[in-house]
Design a protein around this nucleic acid. Structure first.
Lengths: 136, 136
DNA sequence: CCGGATCCTATCGGATACTG
DNA sequence: CAGTATCCGATAGGATCCGG
């Protein structure tokens, strides 16, 4: 009981509520199966080869398709197009069309996207530590 | 200049140093291409369908192969075996062999693994927010 | 300039069978 | 019990071509 089935874009996973009752103190104290969904969501939203780089490229001031592409070596138009669409669906990026001729399209990150900062910080910290640990 | 090529298990990516000079304040202030490697590392270590669940299952007190497998619905022996090996390489899990008969093998999470708590917390927070945002 | 459509490959993960 | 080996389908990502 308490188990839940959760479907994210990638996977169907069954979470057993009992897994979350006895976690050590340094992991979330009373995490629930519900919580795990959120972790999977977050992971899904930012995983993939290009997503983080695209976000950072836009943050760096590249607002047009070609500019973003130029800023990220080796990315193909197919991938950039696909990932931008996903980022837009997830409200991390907005796409604005200016009806001039030729048509002008601008991408920008949302304020919400910036709420991401804390996670990025944590990941930098942890990843840095990780290199040291694994090297040993 | 300042660009770097980085190979993690999954991808070969080129980071352009210039991407990181003008990021908004709510993202890391002076993140470098170096920092992005760490983010990718972290992402890689915990991504995949089962890794987080395995960590949590062990935290919950399942220390033997069969116990972990029973705790995680639908995981196959192949996947559990494979992921445990990776987690061990990344020092998140230790494998101990007790030479009794029949042989007894125990998995446990490392203290290092628990340093992960902050990221999990952040991901829960962000993922929760995300559901609300995307629903609208 | 901004992509969509098509085809292809490599990797991820599942099913099943088998072993010390 | 604690896995390994083999085969296989699904999907992520790449290459290329085309169109508004």
């Amino acid at each position: 009981m308490g188990d839940s089935v959760y479907i994210c874009n990638r996977y169907t996973v069954v979470y057993r509520a009992e897994l979350f009752s006895t976690m050590p103190r340094t992991l979330p104290k009373h995490a629930t199966a519900e919580d795990m969904k959120y972790v999977q969501d977050t992971l899904y939203v930012i995983s993939g080869k290009w997503k983080m780089l695209i976000i950072l490229a836009i943050c760096a001031g590249n607002n047009r398709f070609k500019d973003i592409q130029r800023a990220i070596p080796r990315i193909t138009t197919r991938m950039l197009s696909k990932e931008l669409k996903e980022l837009e669906q997830n409200k991390l990026v907005t796409r604005r069309v200016y009806d001039e001729s030729p048509v002008l399209i601008e991408y920008s990150t949302t304020a919400y996207c910036k709420s991401f900062g804390a996670i990025i910080h944590e990941m930098i910290r942890w990843g840095k530590e990780h290199r040291k640990i694994v090297k040993k």
